[in-house]
Every structure is written in structure tokens, then in C-alpha cells.
């Protein structure tokens, strides 16, 4: 991780920066991207496949707005440091957990739980509490002041 192992080409940089939003919803979207980059559709597909293999691109697709399909909440646990790796793995084991980070605080494990409905979400949080013997802090989103998650990348 960290800095990519190779220098990204200018085409790759544009591919990553310029198409974080507004993917064309038409039969051949990658051909449209290719046109604006001045390359072929096959080159766009090859570059995206490679960037995905390298882990630079997570996916090409939608980023869902929270709580529009299903429900979600941010949660945190204050884990005794000696147990952190073990508890992180217990939390990871739930398919409903989609981010899980160690952070610098007494509440040192932060994760997002997503489920089809409130009852399912409640059940997952209860199971995490039971499995870890720790009480999750539940911090569901109440208001979103932000418009978008894509942000302008600056190339070193």
C-alpha cells in the first residue's frame, strides 16, 4: 500500500480523476470515456482492469447514499489494546461490516454496519456485543452536509 509501486501514466491519472462521478448511463460507457481521453475502448478496459488488480481502483460503479437501500450505522468499540487484532477479526467476520479501521482514541475500532433493515442491523450489533463482550457506540448518520465523495486528486 502507500504510494503506487509504479508511476501512473497521464491517461491513468485522468481516468482516476475525471470519472469519479457521472459515468454515462448508455450501452457503451467505456467507449465514451475512451473518446474523451483519446484512446480506445479496449485500452480503457485494460487500464481499469489493471488498476483494479493493483488495488488502486476499488470498483467502477455506484456509491450508495446511506440509508437509501437498507440501513447503516457507524459504530465504535473501545478495545483493550492486547485484544485489538482478535476483536477486529471478529468484527470483520460479519458480512454486514463494510469498513473497519483502527483509530487513535480510547474508542480504537471504528466500523460501518449495513443491513437490509433495522431489525437485521440491531441483530448484528447485538451479536458483535456478545461476541466481543464490548458495548458498541452507535452513531448513525442524522444529517449529511456533503454532496459527493469523489475528490480532486493531486499528483505528486
Amino acid at each position: 500500500m502507500g504510494t503506487p509501486e509504479r508511476q501512473l501514466s497521464s491517461i491513468e491519472q485522468r481516468l482516476l480523476n475525471d470519472f469519479q462521478h457521472d459515468m454515462p448511463l448508455e450501452p457503451r460507457p467505456f467507449a465514451r470515456l475512451a473518446d474523451s481521453l483519446g484512446v480506445t475502448e479496449q485500452q480503457v478496459l485494460s487500464l481499469l482492469s489493471r488498476l483494479q488488480d493493483e488495488g488502486v481502483v476499488s470498483r467502477v460503479g455506484p456509491v450508495f447514499r446511506p440509508n437509501r437501500v437498507g440501513v447503516s450505522t457507524l459504530a465504535a468499540l473501545a478495545v483493550p489494546p492486547a485484544r485489538l487484532t482478535e476483536v477486529a477479526e471478529q468484527v470483520n467476520a460479519f458480512v454486514e461490516v463494510n469498513h473497519n479501521y483502527e483509530r487513535e482514541h480510547e474508542f480504537n475500532l471504528w466500523f460501518v454496519v449495513t443491513a437490509p433493515d433495522t431489525r437485521h442491523l440491531r441483530g448484528v450489533l447485538d451479536e458483535i456485543a456478545r461476541a466481543t463482550d464490548l458495548e458498541p457506540l452507535e452513531l448513525p448518520m442524522l444529517e449529511d452536509y456533503f454532496i459527493d465523495l469523489g475528490f480532486p486528486l493531486q499528483w505528486a
Partner: peptide, 18 residues
């Protein structure tokens, strides 16, 4: 508005945003 956006989703850490 079910999607925030639709496009390339990058992993910031892999791009040097450590």
C-alpha cells in the same frame, strides 16, 4: 438520489493518500 455518484471508486491509500 439513491446513488451519491456513479463512476470510478479509487482507494486513496493506494494512491499515496496515506
Amino acid at each position: 438520489g439513491v446513488f451519491k455518484r456513479l463512476g470510478v471508486v479509487v482507494r486513496h491509500r493506494e494512491l499515496g493518500y496515506d
